[in-house]
Design a protein around this nucleic acid. Structure first.
Lengths: 352, 352
DNA sequence: ATATTTTTTGCAACCGGTTGCAAAAAAAAT
DNA sequence: ATTTTTTTTGCAACCGGTTGCAAAAAATAT
């Protein structure tokens, strides 16, 4: 009895090393049943008697069998693969995003197939590639790509959601994110509340939708305050270096009292320029960022910023993409999550 | 003529939206050739006459066909999928790692299937999952997991390389990374050269192989210097908070003159604790990190650190994994890349 | 022109699974 | 014990491709 168990274990642990890929057929033969029976044993909710299931499971265990997801996808039409497409691989926030996406997808039995766009903005290659792999759905995670990028997937018949994307009134694809416009306004109000009279927007790249929208909102909110002067400039990327470079440039002429920066990493670059110029934050210059990435609360940074609820955004994105897989004709939806100012040390206290 | 073109375009652009997945068969029928002919047209180096190739390509274009990689993998035995497994999703360095891996793999026509281990240390689930997807190979990117983790893949017959893994004299899997031991010694020499007499290692988690090895090297190098006192402590993770917490604790008693921190992010946490204690770097305390992640050279951090050449490590890892896919019996190799000290502002100049 | 060699082509089997269907077995009803 | 109903089972076709093989076609040699 003990010997038998031992033999069994030995055999089992030998097998995988030697022989690649145990197949359904081998299990069927060993268990003395049809291939269908084996298939059914491993298919949720299929009809198998307890007796055959036992035989099959025993044989499968002995052989170290686990069903080939690729092969089964051929008939079921589901690969459980989700394309995760982004061009954001240099922003620390994106690491948090990847972490949450992978965990969220895994929790639902889905696998992320990662696509790094680098600087590519044409969706054609990604679409072709992800269709070749028959992904069940695609998540485009980018605050810079235009809606047309995600739409290319929809046009190819692939369920898609654009996370961190631009809100449009008549969306053609699901969009989950924040109202960048509203965030711009929120930043403006924050600066107004602090009595700043010369404020500025230090944006990301001018062609990033998020920068465009945040600027719009910022300016709109300030339009009703003619006593406040506003200026606008752009960093060449959402990056530390770009933020630092732009702020360094700004400090050479007469600068504003407070800056709304396009995002956190830009803010941190700006802060470093400010420190190097011998100015103090928030006394001499105020800075408010956007994102609230993990690093923003590091004590040596301590950035006042607008929090974007990325965990919720990502949850909703996943939910929406799986929803669309189940019902491909589902109407495109826009889900925007509210943001809020996180008070830290780079903006002085509101007046009064 | 123009009308014909137009009609053609319209048809083509209509198709993808409506109908999922154009198949080989449909192309074959439209082109009036056998399915084999179509298959061969899309297979590198297969025998097709110019005439049929033209017919097939025309039909394929019209239908918007592109071959199904999943289906073909069934017969070719190659999915071109590479599992990228890690537990490192909170270290900013890892974003750079993911960026380089995805780009490197994509450049070779391979697709990264990302697996986030979170805190899981048992390889069983990852192995099963990645085998179900028939990945061609696996890259385990972790400086904390033991060799046995990657070995589980090899035991399952999956080509694997452990990037950033521990060096062993008789490796059972490919290991690419750095000599952590040597790095520990390098750090020690750097501190010795600066004339520090009380030095310390502020490690990462005690069970991380990288921390164990760096400590070993550090202590070994200092063993020959009885005039220098050494102490050792551990942060509970490779994270800002952990580094800060541990340094805060250390500063409560009499602290060392210079610290070799387990990695950069730990160093940054430590630096923030030092700053908050009103001490100055490098005058009052010196810090040297390890990794040289992008952030280390930010001017507001300006960390003296030991550079780990991650681009080379990743290139080599990819090369090794594809090499093993081609020759599965390839002997396990260890490739260690040299590191070097990057002088910045957190360690005073060497003496003399 | 015919014979020989080379290239191209389609047939059919296969990769590793799933699934509709009808027959067989088991369970429930009579 | 027989009939009816329900469950389980295997057959065979299929998913979307690839590939060995032999026949057909084209190219080259005689």
């Amino acid at each position: 009895m003990f010997l038998k168990m031992l033999a069994c274990i030995t055999k089992a642990s030998n097998h995988p090393g030697k022989r690649m890929a145990v197949t359904l057929k081998e299990v069927a033969e060993r268990a003395g049943v049809s291939r269908s029976a084996v298939s059914r044993t491993f298919t949720e909710g299929a009809s198998v008697s307890a007796k055959t299931r036992a035989k099959v499971e025993k044989a499968a265990k002995a052989l170290g069998y686990s069903p080939n997801a690729i092969a089964s996808s051929l008939t079921t039409g589901r690969t459980k693969l989700i394309g995760l497409v982004s061009n954001n691989f240099h922003n620390p926030l994106f690491l948090e995003v990847v972490d949450l996406f992978t965990r969220g997808l895994q929790a639902r039995g889905l696998r992320p197939l990662l696509v790094n766009l680098s600087n590519e903005t044409d969706p054609a290659n990604s679409v072709r590639m992800l269709r070749q792999y028959s992904v069940d759905g695609v998540i485009v995670a980018s605050s810079t790509l235009p809606p047309s990028f995600a739409e290319a997937f929809r046009d190819a018949g692939v369920p898609v959601v654009h996370s961190f994307g631009r809100y449009t009134t008549s969306p053609h694809v699901h969009v989950v994110g924040i109202d960048n416009n509203a965030c711009g306004r929120m930043a403006a109000y924050a600066l107004i509340a602090r009595g700043h009279k010369r404020v500025a927007f230090l944006g990301g790249p001018e062609n990033a939708t998020s920068t465009q929208d945040r600027e719009r909102g910022f300016l709109d909110a300030l339009a009703g305050h003619p006593d406040i002067s506003v200026s606008v400039s752009y960093a060449r990327a959402y990056s530390f270096d770009a933020g630092r470079a732009e702020m360094t440039r700004l400090l050479q002429s007469s600068h504003a009292e407070a800056y709304f920066c396009g995002d956190d990493v830009l803010s941190i670059g700006a802060l470093s320029a400010i420190a190097d110029a011998g100015l103090h934050v928030p006394q001499d210059i105020g800075v408010i960022g956007l994102n609230d990435m993990a690093m923003a609360r590091w004590q040596n940074i301590n950035l006042t910023t607008i929090r974007q609820p990325i965990a919720e955004i990502i949850e909703a994105s996943i939910e929406l993409v799986v929803g669309t897989i189940d019902r491909p004709d589902r109407h495109p939806e826009t889900r925007l999550f509210p943001c809020r100012v996180i008070e830290r040390g780079t903006l002085r206290k509101p007046e009064g």
